[in-house]
Amino acid sequence: MYRSIIYKEWIKTRTATGFIVLAFAAAAIHSFMKIAEDLRLSGAAACWELVIQKDPAMFPLFEYLPAIAGVLAALAQYVPELQSKRLKLTLHLPLKEDAILLAMSAYGTAVVTLVTAFFGAVLLWGLSANFPAEIAGASFRRLLPGFMAGPSAYFLASWICLEPRWSRRVLNFIPGALALSLFFMRAKSGAFCPLVPWLGGFMAAAFFFVFQSTARFKDGVQ
């Protein structure tokens, strides 16, 4: 039965998932081409020095891409469920409602996390090939909040999307957007590290927000 739920989620999200993968791949190619160009024109030593002295963001696109992917995945999954209140059909399946929702949410989380993790690994590999381990590690750690913003944006967008009342959606959007902005604060590489566990805690808590929206849907809130 859970395979069927995953099958349904795949049918709904396959176009969006393809688009997300393409966007990540394009961003990775663009970033590596830029780094390769800098290394070729300025030389490795000058580039390394620049990175150490100025601490520029080496993958600026990847700071926001996971969050955009999270929102896109949530919209692809839950907008069709809300159209004509199809969620009623989903919740009417012979499974526990929480289990259905958990399976749907786990699917979306897996899509966002796996794509982000895969391209995170690609970025780390590319950095390690061109920079010393310390620079590669610091640059990668700088991306962590952005990567964590992916699942968090997915959970928040799901929470807003499944909320049955428009006025409440707007109300949910405000704290959601404020919370998400914490993942994008400008700081030097590594400065964010103490905040990462707190962001992780928020991300874990946000996973459960969608259950509140669904409970309101079930109560027939309009």
Binding site: K12, P80, S84, K85, R86, K88, L89, H92
Partner: peptide, 11 residues
């Protein structure tokens, strides 16, 4: 259960 409008997963 048949919902009003014969709603189904149209995708």
């Amino acid at each position: 259960l048949l919902l009003e409008g014969h709603v189904q997963h149209a995708y």
